[in-house]
Design a protein around this nucleic acid. Structure first.
Length: 426
DNA sequence: TCTGGGGTCCTAGGACCC
DNA sequence: TCTGGGGTCCTAGGACCC
């Protein structure tokens, strides 16, 4: 039996790097990408990290002088661009192994078991070089006997220049030394709470964690934590998931560009989020029977606060957007309280199943039976061909005073003919 | 003025049943 | 005086990930 080997390939500063690919003027500049609503920084180039800015910082809190002096560039997030670039990266990676788990928009695990005859560090360098050639994006490659160790190897590759972006921890003589170098908060599966707890108990780095008895780990960090520790010890407990799993819940929610007080506006926003969520549901050939709507005021403001949610069950699972819009509006009327400045509403779909598995009903047609599915498919087709908002629901309103802000949006270079980059001869 | 969005999994405790 | 025990299902809350 060949040993278990896995590589984690991760794009460096993914969103910021995507912007740099199409905008040579910012190649060596500090670049920050803002979240929806231009709220917080969600991605930073290494130049921006070096200025001491960290992920999660609200955009408006960054010192204006610092921005000017260092020529910091800030952009609204352009998910159309990042999504398309991600597809290109993943396509390239799939050339290097038949077994690939796309873990997130900018990361994939590659199964390399059975590749023992190769020098895997060299193979990693080849992967890095090819992605660069195909997309212009820099990646780091970490290789190890478990996913958790591959994550650590990846981090090591990123942080140490001599590794040139690729590190194989598998039979490395300094494996324990590397584990000592990783502080607990940087382990995959250890978040803020567990890091605090571990430190309170005198456990500071990954090596120390491997020395703690299983029983204690499971008691304090559940079975999930125990799996992670075993992985640190080199025992594979988290398998690669090659096939895309159907979603168990679908959420659509966004903060408002401006505070909203009116029930009507909240209902419009909820209608819009319903249409986004249910469209995603249909795109996976699924139906849902539970909808949850939540709303909240702005917790950062010193104003009266209110947050609430409620659920509604549809008589039969559906993929028909109006079914959900009606339910959402009923819920909102129930939980809305006048006199508050609302910051956000959201819609969650749950109890999701494949269209073909939905139960039948003797007295009423299912989503598949009557013309509702036909109408929805038709609408999706039109929006696919003509642009995503050609056909919308009147209930989502026209003026949309609640819409989010994206003041500094870059072009969709790779997905829109109008935005395609132009090369000029000088 | 301005603080994101979308997911998953596990556990404890309550409801309910026999 | 003394208030069973075990199984299942559901939900809320808490942890984590990107």
């Amino acid at each position: 039996m060949s040993k278990n080997t896995v590589a984690l390939v991760d794009c460096n500063s993914f969103y910021a790097s995507c912007e740099k690919v199409f905008n040579p003027d910012i190649e060596n500049k500090p670049v920050g990408i803002l979240s929806n609503n231009d709220g917080i920084i969600v991605a930073l180039s290494k130049e921006l990290k070096e200025l001491g800015i960290s992920r999660g910082t609200p955009g408006f809190k960054i010192n204006k002088r610092l921005i000017k002096e260092n020529d910091i560039k800030m952009f609204s997030s352009n998910y159309t661009l990042y999504g398309d670039m991600s597809t290109r990266v993943m396509n390239t990676l799939s050339m290097f192994t038949p077994d690939l788990e796309i873990y997130s928009i900018d990361e994939a695990f590659l199964a390399l078991s059975g590749f023992d005859h190769l020098n895997l560090t060299d193979y990693g360098k080849q992967i890095k070089k090819t992605v660069w050639q195909h997309t212009g994006l820099p990646v780091s490659v970490g290789i190890g006997p478990t996913k958790t160790l591959a994550k650590i190897a990846n981090r090591f590759a990123k942080k140490h220049n001599f590794a040139e972006g690729v590190f194989d921890i598998t039979d490395h003589p300094d494996r324990d030394k590397v584990l000592r170098w990783v502080e607990v908060e940087h382990i995959w599966g250890v978040g803020r709470q567990y890091a605090k707890m571990l430190r309170r108990n005198g456990i500071v780095n990954a090596y120390e964690l491997t020395q703690i008895p299983d029983k204690w780990i499971q008691k304090k960090m559940t079975i999930v934590g125990l799996r992670m520790v075993k992985e640190l010890r080199g025992i594979s407990c988290i398998d690669l998931e090659m096939d895309i799993k159907p979603k168990k819940e679908i959420v659509s929610s966004k903060s408002f560009g401006n505070p909203v007080t009116d029930l009507q506006d909240l209902m419009e926003a909820a209608s819009e989020y319903c249409s986004v969520a249910v469209k995603k549901l249909r795109s996976e050939n699924q139906v849902a029977s539970l909808i949850i709507v939540f709303l909240t005021t702005n917790r950062f403001k010193n104003e009266p606060q209110y947050a609430n949610y409620a659920r509604a069950r549809l008589p039969l699972p559906s993929g028909y957007t109006p079914d959900f819009i009606h339910a959402a509006n009923r819920i909102l009327k129930k939980i809305y309280r006048p006199g508050y400045k609302y910051k956000k509403v959201g819609v969650m779909l749950a109890d999701i199943m494949h269209q073909s598995k939905a139960p039948l009903d003797f007295f009423q047609p299912t989503y598949l039976d009557d013309n509702r599915k036909v109408i929805m498919d038709c609408m999706d087709d039109i929006n696919e061909k003509m642009g995503s908002h050609q056909l919308t629901y009147a209930s989502a309103g026209i003026k949309k005073p609640w819409q989010m802000k994206r003041r500094q949006l870059t072009p969709s270079y790779t997905t829109s003919w109008e935005h395609i980059p132009v090369v000029k001869a000088i």
